[in-house]
């Protein structure tokens, strides 16, 4: 038995990493979504719009740039699922949840920064994305994706 494992170490490593990726990645994803939903409910009353020229119906003292940035990595299981998907084509669901989490987390972090600055609204929301990591553009590497959310926070006068 041990001999079989040692002779096919690569194969067992592959399966082991996939199982680890499935459980660890799944756990991380569920916890992250729970946190995202809680914080979204908490920050729901801070308006964020992508428009440039909608001004709030109260005076604005100053404005500042707020950003939120997230880097997430895929797990081994998602990579296998995505590489299988590469063969057949279609919706890469494994990556969609990842990008969805990154985007919502980036907006949340931006909103948290805006709230700390005392903003009443964020205008001109923009989202950018980049591939990060040395192995990200290589075929066999585990890639990471960065999502940056930024906008203009409008801060009302004090008092």
């Amino acid at each position: 038995m041990l001999e079989i494992v040692l002779n096919n170490l690569g194969l067992f490593l592959f399966v082991g990493l996939a199982v680890l990726g499935y459980f660890a990645g799944g756990l991380a994803e569920r916890r992250h979504y729970r946190s995202i939903r809680e914080r979204e409910a908490e920050l729901v009353h801070l308006p964020v719009v992508s428009s440039e020229d909608i001004l709030p119906d109260r005076p604005v003292a100053r404005s500042c740039l707020v950003t939120g940035s997230v880097v997430v990595s895929i797990d081994y299981f998602k990579r296998i699922l995505a590489s299988l998907r590469n063969l057949f084509g279609g919706r890469v669901g494994a990556y969609e949840t990842l990008v969805d989490r990154a985007r919502r987390e980036a907006v949340l972090r931006m909103k948290e920064q805006a709230r700390r600055r005392g903003a009443c609204m964020v205008l001109n929301l923009r989202l950018e994305t980049a591939v990060v990591g040395r192995s990200a553009d290589k075929k066999r590497g585990l890639g990471s994706v960065e999502v940056v959310a930024y906008g203009t926070a409008l801060v009302p006068p004090r008092g």
């Binding site: 494994a94 969609e96 949840t97 969805d100």
Partner: peptide, 10 residues
Amino acid sequence: NVPHTHPLVE
């Protein structure tokens, strides 16, 4: 934005 199929089903 997210799939509704379980990853194991996929």
